[in-house]
């Protein structure tokens, strides 16, 4: 998997000439909610969808405290367009989600072990696959996700990972953000898609 910003990469905005870019993103995000609903076994809804341009230095503060202990499930996108996907939870929410996914009573999971990490990785996998599948289906473009990586650390440290590939060419990060909630509203998942800027 290459993270080089490829001059040949198609601009995300030009994906599918018949679609408005925002409509395309919305369709992809709706499909993520469908996938998460199937996975969790209860109706997951899209709370908000935003497209924001944030300066690299302000990213952690924008989301919360840069020292907060968070969980990020990270994937790369490769193919006709390049980018990154990250699913972000607070540690507490991530533990709730593991309970939901494993069918445990709420509060059972108190530490993130290998099984819990694997369940969260799978959530990132599925969310990204549903997003990219919808994009592919609507536009005919080829896009593939990498395997997921689970990071548990300070928010700022997690954000270094997504900032580094972009910061070499731009001070601004373009973030497509969607928030998902399940009916009990104990878990808010922040799903971010970060298109790589096209060089040149």
């Amino acid at each position: 998997m290459s993270t080089t910003i490829d001059a040949k990469a198609m601009q995300w905005e030009n994906l599918g000439t018949h679609f408005n870019f925002m409509d395309l993103l919305q369709a992809g995000i709706k499909n993520v909610a469908k996938g998460l609903t199937n996975m969790v076994g209860r109706p997951v809804t899209v709370e908000t969808t935003n497209v924001e341009s944030i300066s690299v230095g302000q990213i952690p503060e924008w989301m919360g405290s840069p020292e907060a202990e968070m969980v990020g499930v990270y994937l790369l996108i490769d193919g006709d367009v390049y980018g990154q996907v990250i699913l972000i939870f607070s540690l507490e929410e991530a533990l709730h989600l593991v309970d939901l996914l494993m069918g445990y009573p709420p509060g059972t999971t108190t530490q993130l072990d290998d099984l819990g990490r694997s369940a969260l990785a799978e959530t990132g996998n599925l969310a990204t696959a549903y997003f990219l599948n919808e994009l592919s289906m609507l536009t005919g473009s080829q896009v593939r996700p990498s395997p997921p990586a689970v990071m548990v650390d300070m928010l700022g440290a997690i954000f270094n990972v997504i900032s580094a590939p972009i910061a070499a060419v731009s001070d601004q990060l373009l973030i497509v953000e969607a928030q998902f909630k399940e009916p009990d509203r104990t878990v808010t998942a922040h799903f971010w898609v970060l298109p790589y800027p096209v060089a040149g």
Binding site: G57, S65, E67, A167
Partner: peptide, 20 residues
């Protein structure tokens, strides 16, 4: 990120949060 801070104020604490 990307900042440089210099201080000679004895009460100041320079802090870089969440370095990954």
């Amino acid at each position: 990120i990307g900042e440089l801070v210099v201080s000679n104020n004895q009460d100041d604490v320079l802090v870089a949060y969440g370095l990954g």
